[in-house]
Design a protein around this nucleic acid. Structure first.
Length: 293
DNA sequence: AAGGGCCTCAACCGCTATAGA
DNA sequence: CTCTATAGCGGTTGAGGCCCT
Protein backbone atom coordinates (compact mmCIF):
# COMPACT_ATOMS: atom_id res chain seq x y z
CA UNK A 1 0.00 0.00 0.00
CA UNK A 2 1.31 3.41 -0.89
CA UNK A 3 1.83 5.60 2.06
CA UNK A 4 -0.25 8.77 2.19
CA UNK A 5 2.07 11.74 2.31
CA UNK A 6 1.53 13.95 5.33
CA UNK A 7 1.24 16.94 3.02
CA UNK A 8 1.36 17.81 -0.65
CA UNK A 9 4.89 18.21 -1.86
CA UNK A 10 4.27 21.18 -4.19
CA UNK A 11 4.76 24.62 -2.72
CA UNK A 12 5.77 23.32 0.68
CA UNK A 13 8.57 25.25 2.27
CA UNK A 14 11.35 23.43 4.08
CA UNK A 15 14.27 24.50 6.21
CA UNK A 16 14.66 27.11 8.88
CA UNK A 17 11.59 28.99 10.05
CA UNK A 18 11.43 32.76 9.68
CA UNK A 19 10.20 35.02 12.50
CA UNK A 20 7.13 35.83 10.37
CA UNK A 21 6.25 32.16 10.11
CA UNK A 22 6.73 31.72 13.84
CA UNK A 23 4.40 34.64 14.51
CA UNK A 24 1.71 33.22 12.24
CA UNK A 25 1.92 29.85 13.96
CA UNK A 26 1.88 31.33 17.47
CA UNK A 27 -1.03 33.61 16.63
CA UNK A 28 -3.04 30.75 15.15
CA UNK A 29 -2.45 28.43 18.11
CA UNK A 30 -3.25 31.19 20.59
CA UNK A 31 -6.59 31.68 18.85
CA UNK A 32 -7.52 28.07 18.12
CA UNK A 33 -5.37 25.94 20.35
CA UNK A 34 -3.17 22.97 19.45
CA UNK A 35 -4.29 20.16 17.17
CA UNK A 36 -5.62 19.76 13.67
CA UNK A 37 -2.08 19.93 12.37
CA UNK A 38 -2.95 18.69 8.92
CA UNK A 39 -5.23 21.61 8.16
CA UNK A 40 -3.43 24.15 10.32
CA UNK A 41 -0.89 25.42 7.74
CA UNK A 42 -3.57 26.45 5.26
CA UNK A 43 -5.75 28.05 7.94
CA UNK A 44 -2.76 29.85 9.45
CA UNK A 45 -1.47 31.00 6.08
CA UNK A 46 1.70 28.95 6.25
CA UNK A 47 3.32 27.12 3.34
CA UNK A 48 4.51 24.37 5.62
CA UNK A 49 3.72 20.75 6.22
CA UNK A 50 1.47 20.19 9.25
CA UNK A 51 4.04 17.94 10.74
CA UNK A 52 6.65 20.64 10.45
CA UNK A 53 4.31 23.08 12.23
CA UNK A 54 3.69 20.64 15.06
CA UNK A 55 7.40 20.08 15.51
CA UNK A 56 8.20 23.78 15.40
CA UNK A 57 5.60 24.43 18.07
CA UNK A 58 6.51 21.45 20.26
CA UNK A 59 10.27 21.93 20.14
CA UNK A 60 10.67 25.66 19.92
CA UNK A 61 7.65 27.93 20.21
CA UNK A 62 5.70 26.42 23.11
CA UNK A 63 5.65 28.99 25.93
CA UNK A 64 6.62 26.52 28.64
CA UNK A 65 9.89 25.56 27.02
CA UNK A 66 12.93 26.11 29.18
CA UNK A 67 15.90 27.58 27.35
CA UNK A 68 19.50 27.74 28.35
CA UNK A 69 22.12 25.39 29.65
CA UNK A 70 21.29 22.14 31.38
CA UNK A 71 21.97 22.14 35.09
CA UNK A 72 24.10 19.55 36.85
CA UNK A 73 20.92 18.10 38.34
CA UNK A 74 19.39 17.79 34.89
CA UNK A 75 22.53 16.10 33.58
CA UNK A 76 22.38 13.67 36.43
CA UNK A 77 18.71 12.95 35.87
CA UNK A 78 19.18 12.34 32.16
CA UNK A 79 22.05 9.93 32.74
CA UNK A 80 20.14 7.97 35.33
CA UNK A 81 16.98 7.86 33.27
CA UNK A 82 18.93 6.82 30.19
CA UNK A 83 20.39 3.96 32.18
CA UNK A 84 16.86 2.90 33.08
CA UNK A 85 14.97 3.65 29.91
CA UNK A 86 17.51 3.76 27.08
CA UNK A 87 16.89 6.08 24.13
CA UNK A 88 13.31 6.80 25.14
CA UNK A 89 13.74 10.54 24.79
CA UNK A 90 10.09 11.39 25.08
CA UNK A 91 9.81 9.35 28.26
CA UNK A 92 12.92 10.99 29.68
CA UNK A 93 11.59 14.44 28.75
CA UNK A 94 8.53 13.93 30.93
CA UNK A 95 10.80 14.04 33.98
CA UNK A 96 12.50 17.31 32.99
CA UNK A 97 10.04 20.16 33.04
CA UNK A 98 10.42 22.51 30.10
CA UNK A 99 12.85 20.33 28.18
CA UNK A 100 11.86 18.69 24.91
CA UNK A 101 12.72 15.20 23.77
CA UNK A 102 14.62 16.67 20.84
CA UNK A 103 16.66 18.92 23.07
CA UNK A 104 17.51 16.10 25.44
CA UNK A 105 18.42 13.81 22.55
CA UNK A 106 20.74 16.44 21.08
CA UNK A 107 22.26 17.19 24.44
CA UNK A 108 22.85 13.51 25.07
CA UNK A 109 24.49 12.97 21.70
CA UNK A 110 26.69 16.05 21.84
CA UNK A 111 27.61 16.28 25.51
CA UNK A 112 26.63 13.55 27.92
CA UNK A 113 27.70 10.67 25.71
CA UNK A 114 31.20 12.12 25.44
CA UNK A 115 31.35 12.84 29.14
CA UNK A 116 30.51 9.24 29.99
CA UNK A 117 33.09 7.97 27.53
CA UNK A 118 35.69 10.20 29.14
CA UNK A 119 34.83 8.59 32.46
CA UNK A 120 35.36 5.18 30.85
CA UNK A 121 31.67 4.33 30.78
CA UNK A 122 29.93 2.95 27.73
CA UNK A 123 27.00 5.34 27.10
CA UNK A 124 24.91 2.57 25.59
CA UNK A 125 25.27 -0.03 28.29
CA UNK A 126 26.28 2.29 31.15
CA UNK A 127 29.01 -0.16 32.02
CA UNK A 128 32.75 0.44 32.09
CA UNK A 129 34.13 0.29 28.56
CA UNK A 130 37.02 -2.05 29.39
CA UNK A 131 34.93 -4.59 31.22
CA UNK A 132 34.94 -7.83 29.26
CA UNK A 133 32.28 -10.38 29.92
CA UNK A 134 34.52 -13.42 30.16
CA UNK A 135 32.83 -14.75 33.23
CA UNK A 136 29.57 -15.34 31.45
CA UNK A 137 27.86 -12.98 33.84
CA UNK A 138 25.74 -11.22 31.29
CA UNK A 139 22.47 -9.46 32.03
CA UNK A 140 20.55 -12.74 32.07
CA UNK A 141 22.84 -14.22 34.67
CA UNK A 142 23.05 -11.01 36.60
CA UNK A 143 19.36 -11.37 37.13
CA UNK A 144 19.93 -13.78 39.94
CA UNK A 145 22.56 -11.69 41.61
CA UNK A 146 21.75 -9.25 44.29
CA UNK A 147 20.79 -5.70 43.55
CA UNK A 148 21.41 -3.14 46.23
CA UNK A 149 18.90 -0.67 44.88
CA UNK A 150 16.26 -3.35 44.40
CA UNK A 151 16.85 -4.21 48.00
CA UNK A 152 16.23 -0.66 49.10
CA UNK A 153 13.10 -0.40 46.98
CA UNK A 154 12.00 -3.63 48.55
CA UNK A 155 12.54 -2.09 51.90
CA UNK A 156 10.66 1.03 50.95
CA UNK A 157 7.70 -1.02 49.85
CA UNK A 158 7.85 -3.34 52.80
CA UNK A 159 8.37 -0.70 55.38
CA UNK A 160 5.77 1.73 54.23
CA UNK A 161 3.33 -0.69 52.65
CA UNK A 162 2.91 1.54 49.66
CA UNK A 163 1.57 0.63 46.23
CA UNK A 164 4.52 1.51 44.09
CA UNK A 165 4.17 1.98 40.41
CA UNK A 166 6.93 2.29 37.86
CA UNK A 167 6.87 6.07 37.57
CA UNK A 168 6.82 6.50 41.29
CA UNK A 169 9.88 4.32 41.67
CA UNK A 170 11.58 6.23 38.88
CA UNK A 171 10.79 9.37 40.83
CA UNK A 172 12.35 7.87 43.91
CA UNK A 173 15.45 6.81 42.03
CA UNK A 174 16.07 10.16 40.39
CA UNK A 175 15.07 12.04 43.50
CA UNK A 176 12.22 13.95 41.92
CA UNK A 177 9.62 14.75 44.51
CA UNK A 178 7.33 16.27 41.87
CA UNK A 179 6.92 12.90 40.22
CA UNK A 180 6.30 11.24 43.52
CA UNK A 181 3.58 13.72 44.34
CA UNK A 182 2.10 13.54 40.85
CA UNK A 183 1.93 9.80 40.95
CA UNK A 184 0.46 9.45 44.35
CA UNK A 185 -3.24 10.05 44.33
CA UNK A 186 -3.39 11.08 47.95
CA UNK A 187 -0.78 13.03 49.83
CA UNK A 188 -0.64 10.62 52.71
CA UNK A 189 2.11 10.02 55.20
CA UNK A 190 3.88 7.67 52.81
CA UNK A 191 3.94 10.29 50.10
CA UNK A 192 5.26 12.81 52.53
CA UNK A 193 7.95 10.39 53.61
CA UNK A 194 8.92 9.55 50.03
CA UNK A 195 9.07 13.23 49.20
CA UNK A 196 11.19 13.81 52.22
CA UNK A 197 13.47 10.98 51.23
CA UNK A 198 13.80 12.36 47.73
CA UNK A 199 14.86 15.76 48.93
CA UNK A 200 16.94 14.91 51.94
CA UNK A 201 20.68 14.69 51.94
CA UNK A 202 23.50 13.37 54.04
CA UNK A 203 23.52 10.11 55.95
CA UNK A 204 24.87 6.91 54.58
CA UNK A 205 28.42 7.39 53.40
CA UNK A 206 29.63 3.98 54.24
CA UNK A 207 27.12 1.51 52.83
CA UNK A 208 28.32 -1.65 51.19
CA UNK A 209 26.61 -3.57 48.47
CA UNK A 210 26.90 -7.03 49.85
CA UNK A 211 23.77 -8.83 50.89
CA UNK A 212 22.16 -8.22 54.19
CA UNK A 213 20.61 -5.30 55.92
CA UNK A 214 23.29 -4.94 58.61
CA UNK A 215 26.01 -4.65 55.97
CA UNK A 216 23.96 -2.19 54.09
CA UNK A 217 23.86 0.33 56.88
CA UNK A 218 26.17 0.85 59.75
CA UNK A 219 24.96 -0.20 63.17
CA UNK A 220 24.70 3.45 64.07
CA UNK A 221 22.53 4.10 61.04
CA UNK A 222 20.24 1.20 61.84
CA UNK A 223 19.99 2.44 65.36
CA UNK A 224 19.23 5.94 64.19
CA UNK A 225 16.56 4.68 61.85
CA UNK A 226 14.83 2.62 64.47
CA UNK A 227 14.90 5.57 66.85
CA UNK A 228 13.48 8.04 64.42
CA UNK A 229 10.66 8.41 62.00
CA UNK A 230 13.00 10.54 60.02
CA UNK A 231 14.24 7.96 57.54
CA UNK A 232 16.48 10.31 55.71
CA UNK A 233 19.35 8.81 53.81
CA UNK A 234 17.46 6.03 52.13
CA UNK A 235 16.93 8.29 49.18
CA UNK A 236 20.50 9.44 49.07
CA UNK A 237 21.56 5.86 49.14
CA UNK A 238 19.31 5.03 46.21
CA UNK A 239 20.66 8.00 44.34
CA UNK A 240 24.19 6.99 45.19
CA UNK A 241 23.61 3.51 43.85
CA UNK A 242 22.78 4.90 40.46
CA UNK A 243 25.40 7.60 40.55
CA UNK A 244 28.41 7.65 38.27
CA UNK A 245 30.21 10.32 40.19
CA UNK A 246 32.62 7.98 41.89
CA UNK A 247 32.79 5.34 39.22
CA UNK A 248 36.25 3.93 38.71
CA UNK A 249 36.66 1.59 35.75
CA UNK A 250 37.84 -1.79 36.88
CA UNK A 251 36.55 -1.38 40.41
CA UNK A 252 32.96 -2.11 39.74
CA UNK A 253 32.31 -5.34 41.51
CA UNK A 254 29.65 -4.65 44.04
CA UNK A 255 29.50 -1.03 43.07
CA UNK A 256 26.49 0.89 41.79
CA UNK A 257 27.36 0.30 38.16
CA UNK A 258 27.22 -3.43 38.60
CA UNK A 259 23.54 -3.06 39.35
CA UNK A 260 22.49 -0.97 36.39
CA UNK A 261 21.74 -3.91 34.12
CA UNK A 262 19.47 -5.73 36.52
CA UNK A 263 18.05 -2.41 37.67
CA UNK A 264 16.97 -1.80 34.10
CA UNK A 265 15.70 -5.31 33.66
CA UNK A 266 13.60 -5.40 36.74
CA UNK A 267 12.12 -1.96 36.17
CA UNK A 268 11.46 -2.77 32.51
CA UNK A 269 9.85 -6.05 33.42
CA UNK A 270 7.16 -4.23 35.33
CA UNK A 271 3.87 -3.74 33.64
CA UNK A 272 3.41 -0.01 33.27
CA UNK A 273 -0.35 -0.29 33.32
CA UNK A 274 -0.51 -2.14 36.62
CA UNK A 275 0.27 -0.54 39.89
CA UNK A 276 2.38 -2.87 41.91
CA UNK A 277 0.99 -3.82 45.25
CA UNK A 278 3.29 -4.79 48.05
CA UNK A 279 2.91 -8.52 47.59
CA UNK A 280 3.47 -8.37 43.85
CA UNK A 281 6.36 -6.03 44.31
CA UNK A 282 8.21 -8.25 46.73
CA UNK A 283 7.48 -11.41 44.78
CA UNK A 284 8.66 -9.79 41.57
CA UNK A 285 11.92 -8.95 43.25
CA UNK A 286 12.24 -12.44 44.65
CA UNK A 287 11.55 -14.09 41.34
CA UNK A 288 13.44 -11.82 39.03
CA UNK A 289 16.38 -10.69 41.05
CA UNK A 290 16.48 -12.72 44.14
CA UNK A 291 17.28 -10.25 46.80
CA UNK A 292 16.06 -9.79 50.16
CA UNK A 293 15.79 -8.12 53.34
C1' DA B 1 41.89 37.00 5.72
C1' DA B 2 40.73 32.45 3.97
C1' DG B 3 39.29 27.99 4.18
C1' DG B 4 38.84 23.57 6.14
C1' DG B 5 37.26 20.73 9.87
C1' DC B 6 34.40 20.17 13.74
C1' DC B 7 30.36 20.93 16.59
C1' DT B 8 25.67 22.05 17.65
C1' DC B 9 20.94 21.86 17.18
C1' DA B 10 16.72 22.80 14.43
C1' DA B 11 14.39 20.38 11.20
C1' DC B 12 13.33 16.48 8.47
C1' DC B 13 12.30 11.55 7.48
C1' DG B 14 10.44 7.20 8.11
C1' DC B 15 8.17 4.55 11.00
C1' DT B 16 4.70 2.98 14.69
C1' DA B 17 0.69 3.67 17.64
C1' DT B 18 -3.82 5.05 18.23
C1' DA B 19 -8.41 6.78 17.47
C1' DG B 20 -12.34 6.99 14.96
C1' DA B 21 -15.26 6.15 10.93
C1' DC C 1 -12.46 -6.01 11.56
C1' DT C 2 -10.41 -2.90 8.26
C1' DC C 3 -8.93 1.34 6.68
C1' DT C 4 -7.48 6.04 7.08
C1' DA C 5 -5.99 10.15 9.37
C1' DT C 6 -3.37 11.98 12.82
C1' DA C 7 -0.06 12.24 16.53
C1' DG C 8 4.13 11.07 18.24
C1' DC C 9 8.70 8.94 18.44
C1' DG C 10 13.63 8.14 17.46
C1' DG C 11 17.30 8.38 14.06
C1' DT C 12 19.50 11.24 10.79
C1' DT C 13 20.72 15.30 8.17
C1' DG C 14 22.51 19.67 7.06
C1' DA C 15 22.99 24.76 7.78
C1' DG C 16 25.45 27.80 10.25
C1' DG C 17 28.71 29.12 13.68
C1' DC C 18 33.16 28.52 15.80
C1' DC C 19 37.92 27.38 16.04
C1' DC C 20 42.32 26.35 14.32
C1' DT C 21 45.88 26.52 10.98
Amino acid sequence: MVRTPCCKEEGIKKGAWTPEEDQKLIAYIQRHGEGGWRTLPEKAGLKRCGKSCRLRWANYLRPDIKRGEFTTEEDDTIIKLHALKGNKWAAIATYLAGRTDNEIKNYWNTNLKKRLKQKGIDPTTHKPINSTDQTGIGPKNLKRSSSGSARVLNRVASKYAVDLNRDLVTGIIIGNSTIITQNSEVENSTTILLNKMSTSSGFSDNCSFSDGFPEFFSNQEISDMSMSDDHVGLMEELKGMLSYDNAVPGEIEGSPEANIADEMEFLDSWNVEDDLDLEKFVSSLDSSIGVFV
